[in-house]
């Protein structure tokens, strides 16, 4: 009985994977992935501008807090696009992704990058008394390094041939 239920469950999971549009038409995956890259550009591009501002390297005539406020909605939009397209790409082949070392590494980097952004980066940017540029540059550097980690491990998912 339990074995039968398990078998039906496994078969249903297999069927739902093959009925998924991303697996039925070969062009769906690259199209969704293109949206994922646009979302990445919006998210990491705006975060990078904030990090460069924290380092006093761009838009220095505007206050850090002012820029952080202006960029926040676009950072949220970027996160939203990524949290819709990313999980959908994952549904193409969940077991393969879970066993893919690059995918796991990407999730760790992503968790660390988001956590760091909403604590250290936002905290530093929101200070009413600006802290020294040395500390701000350190925060910006760690932030950029974490996002580069997300991107590099994300790119290398494909090198472990998830879709074959």
């Amino acid at each position: 009985m339990i074995a039968e239920i398990a078998q039906v469950a496994a078969q249903t999971a297999k069927d739902s994977i093959s009925l998924n549009p991303i697996n039925r038409w070969e062009w769906v995956f690259p199209l969704v992935e293109s949206i994922h890259i646009c979302g990445f550009t919006l998210l990491v591009g705006t975060v990078a501008v904030l990090d460069l501002r924290l380092s006093d390297l761009v838009l220095t005539r505007q206050s850090i807090a002012q820029l952080a406020r202006a960029l926040a909605p676009w950072i949220y939009l970027g996160i939203a696009v990524q949290f819709i397209t990313g999980p959908y790409l994952f549904t193409a082949s969940p077991p393969d992704y879970l066993h893919n070392p690059s995918f796991r590494m990407k999730m760790y980097f992503l968790a660390a990058a988001l956590l760091f952004h909403f604590t250290a980066v936002r905290g530093t940017a929101g200070k009413s008394q600006p802290i020294g540029v040395g500390w701000r540059r350190l925060v910006a550097f760690v932030s950029i390094a974490l996002w580069v980690g997300v991107m590099f491990s994300g790119l290398s998912i494909g090198f472990f041939a998830v879709n074959d």
């Binding site: 550009t41 919006l42 990491v44 591009g45 820029l67 202006a70 991107m151 790119l155």
Partner: peptide, 30 residues
Amino acid sequence: PVLGCIHVLSIALFGGMVAIGNLRVLGYTM
């Protein structure tokens, strides 16, 4: 993979600033 990484990183750096510049002209930010 290294070139791919550099290529996508520069898209983020370059594209993010293109996006913010355009959004400013459109009046959606700053």
